[in-house]
Amino acid sequence: MKFLKTIRAWWRGLFRKRRFNMLNATDNTEEWHMHLSPASILAGLVAFMLMLFILTLSLVAYSPILEFLPGYRTEADRSRESLVQNIIRLDSMERMMNDMLTYNENIALIMEGRTPVARVLASSDSSRISKVLVMPSHEDSLLRAQMEGDGEYAIAGQGGSRRQVREAIELATPVEGIITGKFDIRQGNFGVKIAATAADRITAIDNGTVIQSLWTPETGYIVVLQHAGNLISVYKNLSQSLVTTGQTIRSGELIGYNAEVQDGEVRLFEFELWNNGKPVDPEGYIVF
């Protein structure tokens, strides 16, 4: 019973109003007063805390106030940077896929004996916008005429220096024989034709990787090697291929055999050399 009486007394005291007044310090007269109970003070504090919580929640949800907080600003910057990096990676992957498709298409054209085509980049590619060509000057035209002509400084007349450059490259001869067909793009000859012994050994001109090894009715077995410096060597008219795609080959290693005798004739061995996606004269790189 005593406990119940204590609770009742405490409950009544909670709602019992108290008088708060303000007195003048000079004559001790009352200037202002207010009646408050402990329950009303508690309700006022709860209401104030609730309003403060709602205001804080509204500021966080509908204003950029979090950007000014050190920790939250760092997380926002990281998210933004991560998004930008992912976009850049996707763009780079798309370019790489396009380059790989173009590369495979050019290899297929090379195998068919046709000239590969260069991919035309879209104008939206901001990193590879075509630059404005500078027109050659009169002096440049004169120098070009001297270099391409038959004069003292003509490139065609420097046979000895060209041989030294070819020997410095150190590319091995694919097969011993006599060149019967010269390199001529205008006539569709993207390489040289070599008359070699039937079933003779065909070797790699340099270290590389096999990117194609297949057979066609027109050219027999074909082997394509990828070398350093964007150099590709193509071996056609083989009677047998001893390599597989993806295999690593060393310079001078056996990759196949020359065509065998058919109807009393031997098909000429064809050798092509491509540099940066363009056919080049093998005699400018290899001393046959």
Score class of each variant (00 low, 15 high):
F3E: 00
W10F: 01
W10C: 05
W11Y: 05
F15D: 01
K17R: 07
R18Y: 06
N21P: 05
M22T: 08
D27E: 00
D27N: 14
E30G: 01
H33P: 01
M34I: 09
M34D: 02
H35K: 08
L36Y: 04
S37Q: 01
L45Y: 09
F48G: 08
I54L: 13
I54R: 07
L55Q: 01
L57Y: 01
S58D: 04
V60T: 08
Y62S: 07
E67I: 07
F68K: 09
R78I: 10
S82E: 11
L83I: 07
Q85P: 00
Q85Y: 09
E94I: 09
R95W: 03
R95K: 15
R95Y: 07
R95F: 09
M97G: 02
N98L: 11
T102M: 11
Y103S: 08
L109R: 15
R114A: 08
T115Q: 15
P116Q: 08
V117L: 13
A118M: 06
R119F: 12
D125H: 09
S127K: 14
R128K: 12
V132H: 10
M135C: 05
H138I: 09
L142R: 13
A156N: 12
G159W: 10
S161I: 11
R163N: 13
E167K: 15
E170M: 11
A172E: 14
T173C: 10
G177D: 10
I185E: 12
F190Y: 14
K193T: 10
T197L: 14
T203P: 04
V210F: 06
S213G: 07
E218S: 07
E218G: 05
E218K: 14
G220E: 02
Y221F: 12
V223R: 06
V223E: 06
V224L: 11
V224W: 08
Q226I: 01
A228P: 01
G229P: 04
N230E: 09
L231K: 05
Y235H: 14
N237V: 05
S239Q: 12
Q240S: 07
T244F: 06
G246H: 01
Q247Y: 05
G264L: 04
L268D: 11
E270P: 02
F271R: 03
F271Y: 08
N275C: 05
G277Y: 03
D281I: 08
P282K: 06
Y285Q: 00
